[in-house]
């Protein structure tokens, strides 16, 4: 019972999503719209689950006064303030939520990603040491694309943008296309396995 019903749900919902592509009329088309609306709501609950887990973990940390519990207080404070302002007074520009979004979320988010610029520099050093022909190709392709996309590259040699364009349009497209087709075949086979109940990892143990 704990396994059969979830498997039946996956089969029915999965089949409706597949069949609606070929038969977009009633009743399959209506079911598709209905399931899509439901899915949007249930997906949102998945975020609630994640936030609930965050509260549980950090709540426990504070309750047990574990090392670094003060940081957990700060985390829960940020979470609570954003939820109260966002749900209570809306999220439009001009609200207190938007003020916090603009002065806390935006700068911290872009700084976190900007921080990666430094780490990517050391990663580049390791990746770009041309120890074999493949690494050399990676190096030369990245350098040419970067030089072709910045004004300094064009100032150095007018052909850099042309070469970068060619790399993007021809060998890069070929490589990306092979990856995309490979991924698509993998997704199709895995999806079929899931819908038919052969792949059951998402249902967990027991």
């Amino acid at each position: 019972m704990r396994r059969q019903i979830p498997l039946a749900i996956t089969l029915v919902v999965g089949l409706v999503m597949v069949v609606q592509y070929f038969v977009p009329h009633k009743p399959v088309g209506n079911l598709y719209d209905l399931f899509n609306t439901w899915a949007i709501v249930i997906f949102a609950f998945a975020i609630v689950l994640g936030v609930g887990n965050l509260i549980k973990i950090h709540g426990d940390r504070i309750y047990r006064l574990e090392r670094g519990w003060g940081y957990s207080v700060l985390l829960l404070l940020g979470l609570t303030v954003m939820i109260i302002t966002g749900i209570g007074w809306g999220i439009e520009p001009g609200t207190s939520f938007f003020y916090l979004y603009w002065h806390l979320y935006v700068p911290m988010s872009s700084t976190m990603f900007a921080l990666l610029a430094f780490f990517i520099a050391s990663a580049s050093y390791r990746a770009f040491r041309a120890r074999n022909f493949e690494a050399f190709l990676l190096l030369i392709s990245a350098v040419l694309v970067m030089l072709g996309r910045v004004p300094m590259g064009k100032a150095l040699w007018g052909q850099f943008p042309v070469i970068a364009d060619w790399i993007m349009k021809v060998p890069n497209t070929a490589g990306q296309r092979a990856i995309m087709i490979g991924i698509a075949l993998g997704v199709v086979s895995t999806s079929l396995r899931i819908i038919l109940g052969i792949e059951r990892a998402h249902l967990g143990g027991e």
């Binding site: 700060l74 985390l75 404070l77 940020g78 916090l100 911290m108 988010s109």
Partner: peptide, 9 residues
């Protein structure tokens, strides 16, 4: 930690 809390919120 503040970033994680604010993002989740």
């Amino acid at each position: 930690h503040l970033f994680i809390g604010v993002s989740a919120g």
